[in-house]
Simulated assay, not measured.
Amino acid sequence: MKLSNFISITALIISIVILWGLKEIIILFFGSIIIAMALCTITGKIRDFLHIPRWASLAIAIITIILISSISFVIIIPQFTSEFQELINQIPSAASKLWDLSINTFFNFAEIIYKDNIPSLADRSILSNKLSIIPDGTALASGITDSITKLISLVSNVGVGILQFIFIISVGLMITLQPNAYREVSILLVPSFYRRRARTILLKCGNALSSWMTGVLLSSICVAILASIGLYLLGIKLVIANALIAGVLNIIPNVGPTISTIFPLSVALLDAPWKSVAVLGLYVVIQNIESYVITPSIMQKQVKLLPGLTITAQFIFTFLFGPIGLLLAIPMAVVIQVFVKEILIHDILEKNYFAPKM
């Protein structure tokens, strides 16, 4: 092996090790890029609509976001916080009730099946002894409560979370102020012969992210509205909290909608068992409407991700980066797909191997 090749391989390995050590900073920086892309998208829409300079449209975008956030904190957040706390408190009772309902159903079936042939098995005390290896409803509810408490305390470390939030917002604003300058700096890291092509690829990544963010925002709003209407018609309590949870968790495909179903099911189960079945059916209908009606109509220009790739990306990025990796898995998958399509497939495989020889 030549000395130059050995040095190149060594430099590559050292770079990978350094990047791995900085993976938490990298994922936070990617979150800042997402924030910057969102602000740039809103700014561009305002500039095109009002025909004003970019700095004026950016100021309008930031002021509008601050006003909406302030109104949310004053009007919506207190109500949501109160209802969410009540939701958490009701989950153990719902779990206990579900356990008791399951046991009673089991006893009823046992009595129907064995009352003629084996009467002793219909005795509930005997069946209780048979089922003694399974924890009772109180233990199950306590376990669920402890798990939720530990999960919340694990995810919401206040000090670290605030610092990460400040970092993401600050860097995102800096990138938003001068997006072209940051893009050109990144392009300088690319060999000179490929810089024009790299600029095009980065623009495509930006367009894909903007399309994804616009689509997922509209989709989440529609899901929250449908959930609030459906829960209100079914007479389920804590409509605001459940609807906002459904809208926010809709950002995380596959996992988010499943988690959002737990809370209204718990409330409905404490009210009447049939309402829990109705809530489950409601959320299934909402997710089908979101998947087959809302998403196709508002995300026509979005980069299409196959369901298998979506789940794989969520698993890999959650394993590598933790909860924030799960949250950013889809936008990262969108960017990676653009890079693979444009660089690996179009520039390397097609041109080098499948293009006609001149």
Rank of each mutant, 00 (worst) to 15 (best):
M1V: 15
S4M: 12
N5C: 06
A11V: 12
I13G: 14
I16L: 15
W20R: 08
L22C: 11
E24H: 15
I25A: 09
G31S: 04
G31V: 02
M37V: 15
T41L: 13
I42M: 10
D48P: 03
F49C: 09
P53I: 00
R54D: 10
S57W: 01
S57K: 03
S57G: 05
L58N: 04
I60Q: 10
T64E: 12
I65M: 13
S72I: 05
I76K: 00
P78Y: 00
E83L: 04
P92Q: 04
S93W: 08
S93V: 04
K97D: 10
D100C: 06
F106N: 15
F107C: 13
N108M: 12
N108C: 05
K115S: 14
N117Q: 06
I118S: 06
A122I: 10
D123V: 10
I126M: 07
I126Y: 10
S128Q: 12
N129V: 11
N129S: 08
L131E: 00
I133C: 12
I134P: 08
D136E: 01
T138P: 08
A139G: 02
T145F: 13
T149R: 11
L151R: 01
L154N: 08
V155D: 09
N157Y: 07
V160K: 08
I162Y: 12
L163E: 06
F167D: 04
I168L: 09
I168N: 09
I168T: 13
S170Q: 12
L173F: 13
M174Q: 11
R183E: 11
I187Q: 03
L188W: 14
V190T: 02
F193K: 14
S210R: 01
S210A: 08
T214F: 10
G215H: 05
L217H: 02
I221N: 02
L226I: 02
L226V: 00
S228F: 03
S228N: 03
G230E: 13
Y232D: 09
L234A: 12
K237P: 00
A241T: 00
A241M: 03
I245P: 00
I245D: 01
G247N: 00
G247V: 02
G247F: 00
I252V: 15
N254T: 12
V255M: 01
I259Y: 10
P264F: 05
L265Q: 04
V267Y: 02
L269V: 07
A272W: 12
P273I: 12
W274D: 15
K275A: 06
A278V: 00
V285T: 07
Q287R: 14
N288G: 07
Y292I: 00
V293T: 09
T295P: 01
Q300K: 15
L305I: 11
L305N: 05
G308W: 10
I311L: 14
Q314E: 15
F315E: 01
F317A: 02
F317I: 10
F321N: 01
G322H: 05
I324K: 02
G325A: 09
L326V: 08
L327K: 07
P331A: 01
M332Q: 02
V334D: 05
V334K: 04
V335W: 06
V335F: 06
V338S: 03
F339P: 03
V340F: 10
V340W: 09
E342C: 09
L344Y: 13
D347C: 04
L349C: 11
K351N: 07
K351M: 14
N352Y: 10
P356Y: 07
P356W: 11
